[in-house]
């Protein structure tokens, strides 16, 4: 099954040379347009939508490079698996760290009664000497 996929894959470069050049140029133009779009979007007052817009455009650009320049489209299932693993574990990594930072100030202990907020030296029992017995 995978050998079959690779024969197809090998063939992508061989036969349809003019076709693939055309495809690459199309993708290239799309990437340029998206670059222009993201720069333009950064100059528009979008408020809190700046980040989602910029990240979405970046993801689309990355997908274009991945699918067409790196031949993920038409690649073997194994290549999809590797990409899926990368996406999956990077997501785990970012979201679990993010979970910590996001929830750090959810719980703040209630303020202690005033008399406990004032630091007092612990009482030293008179029988215990300060250094080792």
């Amino acid at each position: 099954m995978s050998a079959h996929a690779h024969q197809q894959h090998d063939a992508t470069g061989h036969h349809d040379e003019a076709g693939s050049v055309k495809l690459y140029v199309t993708i290239f133009v799309a990437l340029l347009v998206l670059t222009a779009a993201t720069v333009a979007a950064s100059n528009v007052p979008l408020g809190r939508w700046h980040i989602p817009v910029a990240i979405s455009i970046a993801v689309i650009k990355a997908l274009l490079v991945l699918l067409f320049f790196m031949h993920l489209l038409g690649g073997s299932r194994l290549q999809w698996l590797v990409v899926a693993a990368a996406g999956c574990f990077a997501t785990i990594f970012v979201s679990l760290i993010g979970a910590d930072y996001a929830s750090r100030d959810w719980y703040l202990p209630p303020p202690a009664p005033l008399e406990q907020q004032i630091w007092q030296p612990a009482e030293i029992p008179p029988s215990a000497p300060a250094d080792k017995p």
């Binding site: 679990l96 910590d100 750090r104």
Partner: peptide, 18 residues
């Protein structure tokens, strides 16, 4: 194994919810 690393940080300043 990749989902559990925070148990090394229970007594650090990590969020209690995490």
């Amino acid at each position: 194994g990749f989902l559990v690393w925070g148990h090394h940080m229970f007594v650090s300043g990590q969020s209690v919810y995490a």
